[in-house]
């Protein structure tokens, strides 16, 4: 093997190893892994199943909130929520029909919400403002209308 080739391959492997270590450290040490909740639910009985029988926002601690939300064509329930700046918000999500996406623009919140599965994701909202929440997985003719807002005061 050519010397330059050896140098190149060493650099390549080195770079890739660094990427692996960083993503691994963030995932397991800092618990920044992507949303992967494992609970399931009957998608046709979402309205009768706790906690989704009472969708909405609930204060669960000092600056800490829990949002129970259902996604269905082509809306989010609840379709607007308000929290003070600096709040930590735990979202508990499920779909009543097809696969939807839960994306809050300009944040790291991004999760697939699938029928039959409960998804969880947590975010601390430090910056005040109006955050657009939208469905980012094609769900039918009205997909582009599916949105809500989170107001951080």
């Amino acid at each position: 093997m050519h010397l330059d080739e050896k140098i190149w391959l060493t650099l390549s492997f080195g770079m890739i190893m660094i990427f692996m270590l960083i993503t691994g450290y963030q995932t397991f040490a800092l618990e920044m892994g992507p949303p992967s909740h494992q609970e399931t639910i009957d998608p046709e009985k979402v309205d009768q199943t706790a906690p989704f029988n009472e969708p909405g926002i609930k204060k669960i601690g000092e600056n800490e909130y829990e949002v129970v939300m259902t996604l269905q064509i082509f809306s989010f329930t609840p379709n607007t929520i308000e929290v003070p700046a600096g709040s930590k918000v735990h979202f508990i999500l499920t779909s009543k029909d097809v696969v939807h996406g839960f994306e809050v623009a300009n944040t790291n919140i991004n999760a697939m919400v699938m029928p039959g599965h409960i998804q969880k994701i947590t975010q601390t909202f430090d910056q005040p403002g109006e955050y657009l929440v939208l469905c980012n997985e094609y769900c039918g003719a009205g997909h582009q209308m599916m949105s809500m807002t989170i107001s951080v005061k």
């Binding site: 190149w8 391959l9 390549s12 492997f13 890739i16 990427f19 692996m20 993503t23 691994g24 995932t27 397991f28 892994g33 992507p34 949303p35 992967s36 909740h37 494992q38 609970e39 399931t40 996406g101 991004n110 999760a111 697939m112 919400v113 699938m114 599965h117 409960i118 998804q119």
Partner: peptide, 28 residues
């Protein structure tokens, strides 16, 4: 499928590692 529920995050991470490996032949 990294954003999907129902898949253990450790297995997602394992496949991320394998994904990085497939970069090597492209660099070659």
């Amino acid at each position: 499928q990294l954003m999907e529920p129902g898949i253990d995050p450790a297995w997602k991470f394992l496949q991320v590692i394998l994904t990085f490996l497939v970069v090597i032949p492209s660099l070659m």
